[in-house]
Nucleic acid binder design. Structure first.
Lengths: 261, 261
DNA sequence: TATGTTTAACAACTAGCTGTGTTATCTATG
DNA sequence: CATAGATAACACAGCTAGTTGTTAAACATA
C-alpha cells in the first residue's frame, strides 16, 4: 500500500480503513501511505471537519454511522459510478419545458449536471450545490427553496422550505433517500423526511433514485412506501433477484445500465 | 495609456471609455491598450455578457443606463472604496446574537464579508453571493430566502421570497438602493421594490446604506421615504451640504470615514 | 466578390494555488 | 516534569487554470 496516490484518493482510503478498523493511530497511517505525519494530520483534520472521523490524542476513530452517513462530503464519495448511471437514466425522464423538482441528495446532483441539455426548463431545489450549478445554466429558470441552512446537507430545510414547496407544483420530482427495504423507504433525519414528503405532495410524477448499496437497509424514520413513487430507478449493479422481488411488489422499477469501460 | 494592466482592470477601463464616448471600434481599443485584437474581442464578449455594452460589426456601443445599471457585475465595480467604508461602519451596528437581514445589493455584500467577526449571528438573505459566503462561515445560522432566480441581480425574488420574508422577523435590516433624492428613495425594478418593502416590514431597525454617488438621482419606482429608515449610512465622500440638508430633513444620517492610504 | 471583421483552435506562458515536508514550538498525558 | 503527540510557520515543488497571441477559417458588409 505504498503507491503514490493523490490527496483525495488517500483520504478515501484512510476513511475506509478507519471505518473498517474502528480506529488507527496517525503514525500507522503515515507509515502505511509513505507520507509524513504532518500530511496525515492534515488529512485527518479534513475528515474530521467532514464529520467522518473523530480525532483523539494519537489517532482517530470512526464516527457512529448515523453521524457521518448524513454528510454531503461523505455521500459524494460513495457509489459514484452507480449514481452517474442512474443520473443518465433519470435525465431521459426530463423533457424540455418541464418543471423539475430536485431534493438535496448527491444522486440528484448528478442529474443536475446533465440537465442543461434538456433546456428550456424550470428547476426547483433546496440543494445549494444544485442552485449554484443551475444559476450558471442558460435557459434554465431556477426557483430556489429557502429555509434554514444545514451544513451537513448543504441544503435548506425547515418550515420556510416546506411552505415554499407547498405553494408550488412540479411536473416531476427526482428524489433519493438513504435506505429502502421491505417495501418501505427510510431516512435518518426528521427534517429531511418532512421536506421530502412535502416535495412528494407537490409533484405530479414522483421518481425515486436509489443506487443498489442502499437497498436492504433501514434508517430511523420511515419516509414513504416504495409504491408511492411512480418510478424507481436503480443501477445495473442491483442483484437480479432484488429487482424481481421489487417488481413482484408492483414497484415500477427501471435498471440504469452501468458504464462498461 | 499603454501601461501593462491586468484583465479585470483593462475591462474596467474599456467599460468606462465606452460609457463616456458612447461607442468605440475594436481596433481603437487594441491600439489604446497595446493588446491584440483577439484579446479585445474577448474583453468585449465578457462585457456584453455582463450587459454593459452591445456589440456591432466593428466595435461596441454603450447599453442604455437602465439596462446595465441593474447588473451585479457592473455594480460590483462601482464605488468600491465608498462601499467598503460604509460596510465597515455598518458592521459596528451588528452585535453578536442578532438576526440580520441583508438584501441583494453589492453594498451589503461588503458587510457580509465582515460579519463572521460578529458571530454568533443569524443571517437572512436572498442574495446568492451572501448565501455562499455565509454557508462557509462558522457559528452563523443562515436562513436563505427562496424565490425565482434573477441572474442580473444574482438573487431570489418574487412571491415565494416575499412570503418567506413575511414569516420572519429580523433585529436589523441592512439594505441599499440605486438612488435617493428629495427625501425619497428609488429603484428601477418593480420586483426588487416589492422585496425591499417586505424586508422593511419585517425588521425592527431599518438601516439604509448609500454611497454618495447615488445621492441626488432618481429611478423609475419609489421605494420609501428616507425617514422610513432608522439610520442612513453614507460615505465620507459625501459633500457636507448634502449631509446637512439630510439632517435638516430629520434623517438620522451617519458618515462612514473613507480609508486614507 | 473583395475586404475587413469576427470567431475557432491551438500553443505558450504565467500566476497562483495546492499539496507536501521540515523544523520549531506548543500542548496533552502519564 | 518528561515525553510523545499536535500544531504553527515557513519553504518549495508541481500543477492547474486563466490569459494571451498566432494562425487560419468563417462571416458580414459594401
Amino acid at each position: 500500500m505504498t503507491g503514490r496516490t493523490t490527496r483525495g484518493a488517500r483520504q478515501d482510503l484512510i476513511a475506509d480503513h478507519v471505518l473498517r478498523e474502528g480506529s488507527v493511530t496517525a503514525s500507522q497511517l503515515a507509515e502505511a501511505f509513505g507520507v509524513s505525519l504532518m500530511t496525515v494530520h492534515r488529512d485527518l483534520d479534513e475528515l474530521e471537519r467532514q464529520g467522518v472521523v473523530r480525532k483523539f490524542h494519537g489517532g482517530v476513530s470512526a464516527q457512529p454511522s448515523s453521524v457521518f452517513e448524513s454528510n454531503v462530503a461523505y455521500r459524494l464519495r460513495t457509489a459514484r459510478a452507480e449514481k452517474a448511471a442512474i443520473a443518465r437514466f433519470a435525465r431521459t425522464l426530463v423533457e424540455p419545458g418541464m418543471a423539475v423538482m430536485l431534493d438535496d441528495s448527491t444522486t440528484t446532483l448528478g442529474v443536475a449536471e446533465l440537465l442543461a441539455d434538456a433546456a428550456p426548463l424550470t428547476v426547483i431545489t433546496n440543494f445549494l450545490q444544485v442552485i449554484n450549478a443551475m444559476s450558471r445554466a442558460d435557459r434554465v429558470r431556477l426557483i430556489a427553496l429557502g429555509g434554514e441552512y444545514y451544513p451537513t446537507h448543504d441544503s435548506f430545510l425547515g418550515v420556510p422550505c416546506i411552505e415554499a414547496i407547498e405553494s408550488l407544483r412540479a411536473d416531476v420530482l427526482l428524489t433519493s433517500t438513504s435506505a429502502a427495504s421491505g417495501g418501505l423507504t427510510y431516512h435518518q433525519e426528521q427534517e429531511i423526511v418532512l421536506v421530502k414528503r412535502a416535495m412528494m405532495r407537490s409533484a405530479n410524477r414522483k421518481v425515486l433514485l436509489m443506487d443498489h448499496t442502499k437497498l436492504g437497509g433501514t434508517a430511523l424514520h420511515q419516509l414513504a412506501l416504495l409504491t408511492d413513487f411512480d418510478d424507481v430507478v436503480v443501477d445495473g449493479g442491483t442483484p437480479a433477484d432484488v429487482v424481481r422481488a421489487l417488481r413482484d411488489r408492483r414497484v415500477n422499477i427501471h435498471v440504469a445500465p452501468l458504464d462498461t469501460p
